[in-house]
Design a protein around this nucleic acid. Structure first.
Length: 592
RNA sequence: GGUCCGGUAGCUCAGUUGAAUAGAGCAACAGCCUUCUAAGCUGUGGGUCAUUGGUUUGAAUCCAAUCCGGAUCACCA
């Protein structure tokens, strides 16, 4: 953005000289010139018409001439309907190009800020699904982007490991499990435990059906089903620290964690620390009592503790039940407190679906009322739900897209595509599986990350994700083409060097202008917590490079100087692909 | 009902601190491989930016109202 700042100050000076008027930098609007017009940057001159007392066109021409006089990097300008399009000298852009570092480009200066970002948040009674995949991909990519933008970032997970749900799996296992284990059955641990959750539902419905035939109303039957009663008892025993129940709970949760870890690894996400709800759900109580003492919470006659948020436009919320046990928000208070002890963060980002918008508003307000130092830094990165063609995913109806299945399908599809293509990929047999994995995952990750997190996603499992157009594989492919050029050049003993380039074609200049933007894109993506910004930029860069590639040869450039110029461009474009895709958690195959 | 989020091409999405003729991809059609990887490139067709009104030199973008979709408003998590 250096150039735009420079241009702004020149505009201010020129307006002052021309019209003896002082204008504020904030009214100057400088855009990237759209491709259909000549120039690289455009100054919008409508706001100056007031001080020039002339038409925007006349003002633009006078301003353009003044800038041409005062600046030594402006080559020429043209005016269209009040828009002043400015072209800079090729020498300027070549200077920009060679000053783009080939290493650590777009790693911005340290901000000194510490950020904790939470994503994942699985329940331990069943395997991960597409919704978790979206959280994890958004969380992981956002963490990378924030880090590149100069922040100290800590990635954490929260495991919802207690409560009625896991007890359902436990009860069903006791009834029908016969001491089986995931190892014996050769099933991934989380799926193994999830199967008993499904089993619970089956038994439950059966028992409710039997009671219904005895003439009991459904609502009542659901509470009288023997397996439900057993589950409630199980939960009570868990809360009473019954050793047998605790042992079973731990055993089954550990199976689940083994399964989860496998999925994290496949997906390429990781965590610095995992918080278990069971470790902290009691700790939130201390904060609640603290709030009572500070008079920011109040106690009702029955002993339950509440916070009144009506003056903030919300309702009254319960923080502690009448029997003194915690509710959902109590444990989030406890975890937040613990997290601050661990990291003393300036900002806490929670990557959680938008169905919890209300919850996080409450959490932030409650922490602010308690005067916690990290309260203002709480930010809910709210993402839209993932829909299927037939509507919302529903575990009860079995329409949930399983994370492991999805990853496998993507990789298999990539494999089938490559095997069916006539192209001979010149890679060793033992590296092929890795390539299929890289491509399949890239299709999945890019598909999810290119969409603004706020928006809902429509996912159609029947149409396997595309590998053409605005996709991850398209960008990988563009990268691989560049690498192929470099391999060819290496064979000829080519040595890159800085020659004195003269002129630029518009396709070349366009690439340099785009490369110059990259650090600003990172900054913008970090400020907006939006991996989609990075994805869209990289796609645009790939598209622009392919246009250039189709029109001009690098290895057979018109001259030695052009060869070196184009190598310098291509090398930096490839670096940005690797860096940008890396932020999204996507790998770059050297050939494909 | 209150609150929040969304509605842009047949489909999936960009564009929303106001700015030129609203852009991509997919799908359809027509071209381009003796030349660095055709997963590519070029072109054609496709739009009441949900609707109406307002602010402005200028509105997909800001404001108001309405319609449609979703979420949420539990001593569930």
């Amino acid at each position: 953005m250096k150039l735009e700042e420079l241009l702004k100050s020149e505009v201010i000076a020129a307006i002052n000289k021309l019209y003896s008027a002082n204008i504020d930098a904030s009214i100057i609007k400088i855009d990237k010139t759209p491709p259909e017009f000549e120039g690289e940057f455009t100054v919008v001159t409508f706001p100056f018409a007031k001080v020039s007392k002339k038409s925007p066109d006349a003002t633009a021409i006078e301003l353009g001439n003044a800038l041409l006089q005062s600046s030594n990097i402006i080559l020429k300008f043209n005016v269209v309907k009040g828009f002043l399009n400015i072209s800079f000298k090729d020498a300027y852009w070549i200077d920009v190009l060679i000053n783009i570092p080939v290493k650590n480009y777009a790693n911005l200066n340290a901000t000194g800020k510490k950020i904790v970002i939470e994503y994942g948040g699985p329940n331990t009674n069943k395997p991960l699904h597409l919704g978790h995949v979206r959280t994890m991909l958004i969380g992981y990519a956002t963490a990378n982007i924030l880090e590149a933008a100069g922040n100290e970032v800590h990635k954490v997970n929260i495991l919802n490991d207690r409560g009625i749900a896991i007890c359902k799996s436990m009860v069903a296992y006791l009834r029908t499990g016969n001491d089986k284990t995931p190892q014996l059955e050769n099933i991934k641990g989380d799926h193994f435990v999830g199967n008993y959750y499904v089993e619970y539902q089956k038994i439950f419905e059966q028992e409710v059906g039997v009671l219904a035939m005895e003439g009991i109303a459904t609502e009542e039957a659901e509470k009288k089903a023997p397996i439900y009663i057993e589950t409630v008892e199980m939960l009570q025993k868990w809360e009473a620290h019954d050793p047998e129940v605790l042992a079973l709970w731990e055993k089954m949760n550990n199976w689940v964690y083994e399964g989860f870890n496998e999925t994290y690894k496949k997906l390429g996400v990781d965590f610095e620390k995992e918080y278990k709800e069971s470790d902290y759900y009691l700790k939130g109580k201390e904060s609640v009592i603290d709030g009572l003492n500070k008079n920011v919470f109040f106690k009702k006659e029955d002993g339950s503790v509440w916070v009144d948020l009506t003056s903030d436009g919300l309702d009254q919320k319960v923080l502690l039940r009448a029997d003194g046990t915690s509710v959902y928000i109590t444990q989030d208070m406890g975890v937040a407190e613990e997290r601050y002890k661990d990291f003393a963060m300036d900002k806490s980002i929670y990557v959680v679906a938008n169905e919890q918008d209300y919850h996080f508003k409450v959490l932030k307000l409650v922490m602010q009322k308690l005067g916690e130092p990290y309260a203002d830094g709480i930010f809910h990165l709210s993402y839209g739900m993932v829909d299927l063609p037939e509507g919302k995913m529903k575990s009860r109806e079995g329409t949930v897209v399983d994370a492991d299945d999805l990853i496998d399908v993507m990789i298999t599809d990539a494999k089938e595509f490559l095997e069916a293509s006539e192209k001979k990929i010149d890679i060793p047999e033992n590296e092929k599986d890795n390539l299929y994995r890289q491509i399949g995952l890239s299709a999945l990750k890019y598909f999810i990350l290119k969409v603004d997190p706020k928006k809902r996603i429509l996912f159609n499992p029947k149409e396997s994700i595309d590998l053409h157009g605005n996709t991850g594989p398209f960008i990988q492919y563009t990268y691989a083409r560049i690498q192929s050029i470099f391999r060819k050049l290496d064979e000829t003993g080519f040595q890159p060097k800085d020659t004195t380039f003269n002129t630029l074609l518009s396709d070349e200049k366009e690439l340099i202008v785009l490369l110059d933007h990259y650090p600003d894109i990172i900054k913008f993506a970090a400020e907006n917590y939006s991996p989609a910004e990075v994805a869209n930029y990289i796609y645009h860069l790939a598209k622009t490079f392919n246009k250039f590639y189709a029109g001009h040869s690098i290895t057979k450039a018109e001259s030695e100087e052009k060869l070196h110029l184009r190598v310098a461009i291509a090398y930096r474009v490839a670096n940005v692909f690797r860096h940008g895709l890396g932020l999204l958690g996507i790998e770059c195959p050297e050939r494909m």
